[in-house]
Amino acid sequence: MLIRLEHVEKQYSGFHLDCSMEVPEGCVTALIGPNGAGKSTTFKVILGLVFPDSGRIELFGKPIEQITEEDREQLGIVLSDSCFSRYLNIEDLVSVLSHMYRHFDGKDFLERCQHFGLPMGKPLKDFSSGMIAKLKVLIAMSHESKLLILDEPTAGLDVLAREEILDMLREYMIPGDRSILISSHISSDLEGLCDDVWLIDSGKIVMHEETDALLGEYGLLKVTEEQYEALDKSHILRKKKESFGYSLLTDQKQFYQENAPELAMEKGSIDETITMMIRGEKI
């Protein structure tokens, strides 16, 4: 495992994080959840920006306290609200990064910046939010890192800019020995990119599933109250009261398609799964 969190706890006023999760090698892992669920705190704990009250954090198979400078060079990081000083420009960054990372490829970095139309001489404070987002990802990918940790890399971007960033991430994964831990509010971004998904709510992991299983085996049943009463509920995860009766989340779509074909069944999606897992009532 490249990242392992075991009951990592952090207490803030009005918020308690208690998170256990793993990021395997060669996979794109998503951490999703509503605003204030604990995604950024989890990222900050992994990166050593905040200190947990208890629990164990491993990075590259080592306790986080034993991480060396060489290990840190294997990380490519995007923080949602932070980057290099906005008074610097891309040419400055090349000088800084080439002295920061032994495997920084300045030529490739500059070519990619040009490809994405990022201005070389302008200070970052004059960049649009789309330009900054692309630059952050390019920096993270510029030094042959083994693991990308990306907190909301596509936040606030239009669909074209988002797709460009996702293409960059897909390209990054081609060698096969690299991994990504990503958080995003935009489920469509994750559906086409991630291998597995961890759902966090109020500081706790409430679900872990492979994306293929989530999209292929999860479904949303729409039933009347009478249909609900008669239904075998052994594979229902959550229910939610609706005007017509109930919406029911199942992780065994095929079971209900075979045993109750008359029921309306919608294909599972990350958005609906999040909504039902968080807002729905446990059965």
Binding site: K44, L47, G48, L49, E69, E70, R72, E73, L75, I77, L79, D81, S82, C83, F84, S85, R86, M100, Y101
Partner: peptide, 10 residues
């Protein structure tokens, strides 16, 4: 908030 990013560097 640039300090947070600087603290993640090697």
């Amino acid at each position: 908030n640039g300090m947070a990013f600087l603290m993640t560097l090697p």
